[in-house]
Each structure stands twice: as structure tokens, then as C-alpha cells.
Design a binder for these strands. Structure first.
Length: 423
RNA sequence: GGGGAGAUUCCCGAGUGGCCAAAGGGAACAGACUGUAAAUCUGUCGGCUCAGCCUUCGGAGGUUCGAAUCCUCCUCUCCCCA
């Protein structure tokens, strides 16, 4: 199977601008680019599919360019929901670029061979002067066409909304990026989300008009879940690739909890596993879903790619302990490692002498919002001390409840852990 | 500029003088069942020293034994006409 067939079978392609593209991709040596929003210093799982596609293409002999939208970020894509863009400072953008580059490095090779590069479009967009830009670039754009673009049209149709000239120009800048990257790096392919179609096509048109070069574009489908909700959000918000923003444990658990209906599709989209291997897991999901082998594999592959083998092992071990039986007789080191990401409350060890009420402990650790809720939680059997359900409202924690010499583990519900560190 | 409607607990939304911490739905949180899934069912869902008490119905006053409900003023939102 050739590369193009493979990526389309994985579900990584929604639309391509031209039939010829398949041939180019199978030949190799295509320089392609993907744009990233510079507003944060970490990518999130919503980027996972595109990262995987970039990785697959690089391994297939193509050259990836990551473009940070340092310049376009100051303008704002009219398709985006936010009305006003914050102007990021250069230092912020540099900081964000570093963060993103480190993460891209997990998926792409920046070192040798057909090595990836990361650039900031501020570098060239900031050099443009208005007169030159209008004369050399603006003249190739038809306003008639621009106002029919979905992103612009929806803003025009909505009463009282409108669109500023600034945002209206966004499309021109992104188109110019593609032209510029073609000139400077011989970049001939742009890949983006399905909402980027219009912008990509604008770049292709512009470049053809300026220098006659034929460029290509691919859009990726929006990754959705079987229940219709958007992939990438957990109860507590977006799942980031950075360990500071989303702990590796939470990251692993997020993938582990995906539904049977989604997991095979996700294996194809998010991992490099061969399609043959994936079809074995497909059978497993069908015949023995309770074993959750596919979910485990997905969580494993994703966590390994982002956080590495060593952290993966720790996270798997932590998961086993956390979803296991009673926690006792562990040493401090093991506990603090397993529960590294769990919020913990420091407490004087002496407070256990006179007994420390479970209700207070639940409130103080933040497991419950108020004493009333803590009381109800205990009554419903949802409060756990060292993984054992405790239903006595007046329960007092004592030295006997320590899971290790200085730790005590509380839990509300199935997976919400809190740690008390006795000093 | 003229006329009308409205603001209720996280969200939607009922409630027009006591039976109101306020119906119903959603979200959320627990429990059961499971597979750390989905669906379903059950419970909880302002606070507390919890059979009781305290603080809430846009804001400030007032009437009343008693106000989310009535009156006055203010703030904000929406609709229609010009």
C-alpha cells in the first residue's frame, strides 16, 4: 500500500485540492507546512491527528515546516469565535514557540535528514509595507470571492456583528504565508483543519497568479466522538501535551476512557501502528470488549509518544494501584511518585492524635465544596479512605488510617483522588 | 422619540401574598449495574453547629403579622412602531 492510500485509509484526509497530489505524496520529497496558533505554549490533543499526519509524512520522506502564527495571530481568523485578539508580545510568542517546538520534537525529527523546521510568520509579515502589499498581493484578490467565503459570510450575515477590515485581511496574510514559504523553502503543500479550506485555496490561487507555481492543499476532518461531542475535552478542560498543564497520568487516563465506538478510529488517526495491527485490535473490541485492550493500547501509544517510555511505565503502574484494592503498607516514596499529580494537603501529624474528622478532611482537601456536601457524599458511600468506602459520617481519621508513614489517601467517587501529607 | 415585555438558585424555565430553599428539564456530583465505556435506574444538587437555624428570587427602599410575588425609585435586557 502506498503512502497516500495509507493516510487516507487512516481517515486523515478530508479533502485534497487536486488528484495529482496522491502521486506527489507517493514520490516523496514534498515540503509541506502546518500552521499553529501561537496563543499558548502547549499543544493539546486536538492537535494530535495533525501531528501524527506530519510524523507519517516525514517518515514517508517529506519535509515538514511548522509555522507559528506570530503575525497572523495578531489579526485573528474571522472564523474563530473570539471577537478581539490579544496582542501577544514578541517574548510571549518566543516562549510559546519554544514550548511548541519541544512538543513537535516528540513527533518530528528536527535534527537530520529531511529535517523539520519551525518558523514564525511574524518574521516576514512584519516586513511588509502597506503600499507594497496592496500593490503586489492585494491586487490578486477579488473582494467578490472573499465575501463568499464561509468564514466571512457568516459574519456578514449576522446582524450587528460585521467584520473589521483587519480581520477581513486575515485571509490575505495566510495566503501570503503560503506564497512566501513556497518562494523561500519550496513548500508546495499546506495541511490544515477542515475550517482552513478557504485560506489554503487562497494561498494556492495567489501563488499561481504571482509566479505560476502549482501548490496543493489537504484538509483533515474534524475528529468527533460517537456521542457527537468534540474530541479533546475532559471534565476539567482541554487535555494538553505539556506535563505541566495536564499530568501524564491524566493524559493516559483520558485515552484509556475512550468509547469502543471510537477507539479503533482513534488508533488509526493518532498512532503510527500499522493498519494490520490495528485490525487485530478491532477484532478484540468486537469479541472481548471488556478487556479494553484497544483502549489500553491507544493510551499507551499516545503517552509514549508525548511523554516517553519511562513516564509511561510509571503512569501504568499508578493506574493499577489507583484502580486496585485497599491501599496500605506502602512507603512514602512509592506513594508520592504514584500520586505525584494528585493535589495534596499538608497537615500536622499531631492533628491525627485527637482524631481528624473525615468531613473536615474532605472539605479541606477540596474533595467536597461544603460540609453538607461532604456529609451527603459519605452517606451515599462515595467517600473512600485508602480506597475503602467509609460510610460513617462521624468517622475520625487516626494514625491507623495512614497508607504509608506520612500519607493518607482520600477519594470521592471513582477517580477523584486527594492526598493528605502528614508532617 | 413612542409603545410593550422581561430580569428567579450553574444554565433553561415555572412560580402573582403564607403550603417556597422555590415545580420541571439540563448540567454537575454520588450510588447500583458494568469494562476506569455507553445506556439505564436511584439519590443529591444555597449554607450551617442539619428533625432546627441562617442567607437567597436584578439593586435600593416601602406596604404587611408575613413578600420571589404588592407599591416607589434605580440599573440592565429584549421586542414592536417612528
Amino acid at each position: 500500500m502506498n503512502l497516500f492510500e495509507e493516510i487516507s485509509q487512516r481517515g486523515l484526509i478530508e479533502k485534497a485540492t487536486s488528484e495529482e497530489l496522491a502521486g506527489k505524496i507517493n514520490e516523496g520529497g514534498v515540503t509541506f507546512y502546518v500552521g499553529f496558533d501561537p496563543t499558548g505554549d502547549s499543544l493539546h490533543v486536538g492537535h494530535f491527528a495533525i501531528l501524527n499526519l506530519m510524523r507519517l509524512l516525514q517518515k514517508g520522506g517529506h519535509l515538514p515546516i511548522g509555522v507559528m502564527g506570530g503575525g497572523t495571530g495578531m489579526i485573528g481568523d474571522p472564523g474563530g469565535k473570539s471577537k478581539e485578539r490579544n496582542l501577544l508580545t514578541q517574548t510571549q510568542i518566543e516562549h510559546n514557540m519554544e514550548g511548541v517546538q519541544a512538543q513537535l520534537g516528540k513527533f518530528l525529527d528536527f535534527q537530520e535528514g529531511n529535517r523539520a523546521i519551525l518558523v514564525n510568520n511574524y518574521d516576514w509579515l512584519s516586513q511588509l509595507t502597506l503600499i507594497d502589499f496592496l500593490r503586489d498581493t492585494g491586487k490578486y484578490f477579488s473582494v467578490n470571492t472573499m465575501i463568499t467565503r464561509e468564514s466571512v459570510k457568516s459574519r456578514l450575515d449576522r446582524e450587528g456583528e460585521g467584520i473589521s477590515y483587519t480581520e477581513f485581511s486575515y485571509m490575505l496574510l495566510q495566503a501570503y504565508d503560503f506564497y512566501k514559504l513556497n518562494e523561500d523553502h519550496n513548500c508546495t503543500l499546506q495541511i490544515g483543519g477542515s475550517d482552513q479550506w478557504g485560506n489554503i485555496v487562497s494561498g494556492i490561487d495567489l501563488t499561481r497568479r504571482i509566479n505560476g507555481a502549482q501548490l496543493y492543499g489537504i484538509t483533515m476532518p474534524l475528529i468527533t466522538k460517537a456521542d457527537g461531542s468534540k474530541f479533546g475535552k475532559s471534565e476539567s478542560g482541554a487535555i494538553f501535551l505539556s506535563a505541566e498543564k495536564t499530568s501524564p497520568y491524566e493524559f493516559y487516563q483520558f485515552f484509556l476512557r475512550q468509547a469502543d465506538e471510537d477507539v479503533i478510529r482513534f488508533l488509526k488517526v493518532f498512532t503510527e501502528m500499522s493498519l494490520e495491527e490495528i485490525s487485530e485490535f478491532e477484532m478484540s473490541v468486537r469479541e472481548e470488549p471488556h478487556r479494553r485492550l484497544a483502549q489500553q493500547k491507544l493510551a499507551e501509544e499516545a503517552t509514549r509518544a508525548v511523554h516517553g517510555e519511562e513516564i509511561l511505565e510509571k503512569v501504568v503502574r499508578a493506574s493499577r494501584v489507583l484502580f486496585g484494592e485497599k491501599i496500605e503498607n506502602l512507603d512514602d516514596q512509592v506513594i508520592s511518585e504514584i500520586f505525584k499529580d494528585v493535589p495534596s494537603l499538608d497537615k500536622e501529624i499531631s492533628s491525627l492524635n485527637g482524631g481528624y474528622s473525615l468531613i473536615d478532611a474532605l472539605v479541606e482537601t477540596g474533595a467536597s465544596k461544603s460540609k453538607g456536601q461532604a456529609r451527603k457524599l459519605i452517606q451515599s458511600g462515595g467517600a473512600y479512605v485508602n480506597n475503602i468506602s467509609q460510610k460513617d459520617i462521624d468517622y475520625q481519621l487516626t494514625m491507623d488510617d495512614l497508607a504509608s508513614p506520612s500519607f493518607l489517601i482520600l477519594r470521592s467517587g471513582k477517580k477523584n483522588y486527594k492526598l493528605i501529607h502528614l508532617k
